[in-house]
Amino acid sequence: MADDNPEINPAEPGASHNEARRTFLKQSSLLTAMTFTPGPIVQAAAAQFDEKVAAAFEKVPLKLEVNGVKHKLSVEPRTTLLDLLREQLHLTGTKKGCDYGQCGACTVHVDGNRINSCLTLAVMQEGRKITTIEGLANGDNLHPMQEAFVKHDGFQCGYCTPGQIMSAVACIREGHAGSEGEIREFMSGNICRCGAYSNIVAAIQEVKNGGQKV
């Protein structure tokens, strides 16, 4: 990464430039190939050649740790942390419920703090430690919050659940689970359209009152 010296950053300077470059590449590769190759191969060749070049220009290196696993990646700067987790690392437990930071389904922990992974770029998390729902259990042993969600039926369709659980764990760690009212306020960033709120609060209260380490 080209800290302090933007000019040597390997990333391409922008869309219009990319588009012009791509048009040029596509046309030139087509022109050279067209005279002696059947149509489908021309297309495939143009596409592949182009993609490789484009990829080299458009991606930047990224190192981060997810659920204790270190990753060395190459990503487009515009890739959000959420899309990186779901589409590239196949950690689909983190959910996309709105993509605008308005529902909390994408909640993960970054260096222990809960955030909405849809509103941060993956490259901004260089060197950080990410924990997702897949990293919460200890092997086959569920995290106490996961156990409590099952016991209190803190979900219905299950789609907001990973975000609720990540948020619930943080809610206790932050010291925001002191009363039912406080839990409801500090869980309000996680929408459950099925409306399992009462049960989620019961699960959090049980874990909080049980005094287990979260």
């Binding site: 800290d3 010296n5 950053n9 990333a11 869309a15 487009e76 700067p77 515009r78 901004m124």
Partner: peptide, 17 residues
Amino acid sequence: MNQFQYVRPTKQKAAID
């Protein structure tokens, strides 16, 4: 979202520049 260049300065002056 469009493509963009991404830089991550660690010094204030570099950022402003």
